[in-house]
């Protein structure tokens, strides 16, 4: 059990080959640490049976089937299978930044995306993926097939682009492209574009009736600005170079960052969007919890709506 959990540390996870395996390790590690199964998607309308897996809620075991076959099956319900999750993974150049000893933001985002894909597919839900930088690079339609995972992972496991992110337009484009309502998961460092522009994009999803989760992935160095000696900062996406004494600038930088994140957080709250700030040195279960909270909210709403 403990072995699984250690894979929630992104640094440890990075030593494991293969995003598929990494995704499984995350989810298994996460699930092993919980008292209750995360697979809550159980409703009234029965759709099919599924074999019991460790961690599943025993309440949903179909005892009739067990009495006949001596095997554990869970009952699954119609509503759940229709749940769609769209993963939007930012693969712009800025996501390639990694401070010393940490995984890059993109890799961290890939962990999250892969783990969520795995989790969603495990729950028999459908998951789609969009990898973008300044425009949509790859687009995979949602599917609930377990084999879909391989495809998802192949797509998301790509190098960061060199171009700048155009977050606002991309979000609008995606909002237009996604048809069925579902959960939209945006994994990005949000470093491009101003807050209003970003929020407008996110609201577009809300407008279309999606639940939205924003995973704001930042490197610890970006959050803490720990530099002491004179440093020449080279913009990854912006062409500027800046030679400065970071100690003198730290306060100003942090204030700017705070202002931005606060604006985003506030905008998200007003639009009923879940905003989850993440650092790449943070265990990955935070992201999963964030997702699951949104999903359950979505489910409850769905129930209410139904």
């Amino acid at each position: 059990m403990a072995e699984y959990q250690q894979y929630l540390q992104p640094q440890t996870l990075a030593s494991v080959e293969g995003l598929g395996l990494q995704a499984r390790l995350i989810v298994e590690g996460y699930v092993a640490g919980m008292h209750k199964s995360p697979y809550h998607g159980f409703s009234v309308e029965f759709s099919q049976h599924r074999e019991y897996a460790p961690g599943d809620d025993v309440r949903h075991i179909d005892w009739k089937v067990w009495s006949k076959t001596d095997k554990y099956y869970l009952k699954q319900y119609e509503e759940e299978t229709n749940l769609l999750t769209y993963l939007l993974l930012d693969a712009s150049a800025s996501m390639g930044y990694a401070s010393e000893g940490n995984v890059s933001k993109l890799q961290y985002g890939q962990f999250i995306a892969a783990a969520l894909s795995y989790l969603v597919l495990q729950q028999q839900d459908s998951v789609g993926l969009c990898v973008f930088d300044d425009r949509v690079r790859r687009w995979l339609r949602p599917s609930g097939q377990p084999s879909h995972l391989k495809e998802l992972i192949r797509v998301m496991d790509s190098e960061p682009a060199r171009e700048r992110t155009g977050l606002g337009p991309v979000l609008h484009e995606m909002a237009e492209r996604i048809g069925r309502r579902g959960i939209v998961v945006l994994i990005s460092d949000l470093l491009d574009g101003e807050a209003p522009e970003l929020l407008a994009g996110l609201k577009h999803f809300r407008h279309k009736g999606h639940e939205v989760v924003v995973f704001h992935v930042l490197d610890p160095a970006e959050v803490d600005f720990p530099f002491r000696q004179v440093t020449k900062f080279k913009g990854i996406e912006l062409p500027e170079e800046l030679l400065t004494d970071p100690t003198a600038l730290r306060e100003g930088y942090l204030a700017e960052l705070r202002t931005f994140t606060e604006a985003v957080r506030k905008g998200c709250r007003l639009s009923d969007i879940d905003y989850v700030p993440l650092r790449t040195d943070q265990p990955l279960d935070v992201a999963l919890t964030g997702y699951l909270a949104t999903r359950s909210a979505r489910t409850r709403k769905g129930q209410r709506r139904a």
Partner: peptide, 24 residues
Amino acid sequence: LNRRRYREESWAAMRFLLAAIRKN
């Protein structure tokens, strides 16, 4: 001399840094 001896850092959050330096 100190200004000559600096480290380089590719930096993603450049816009905050630029804003900070503009103000300070």
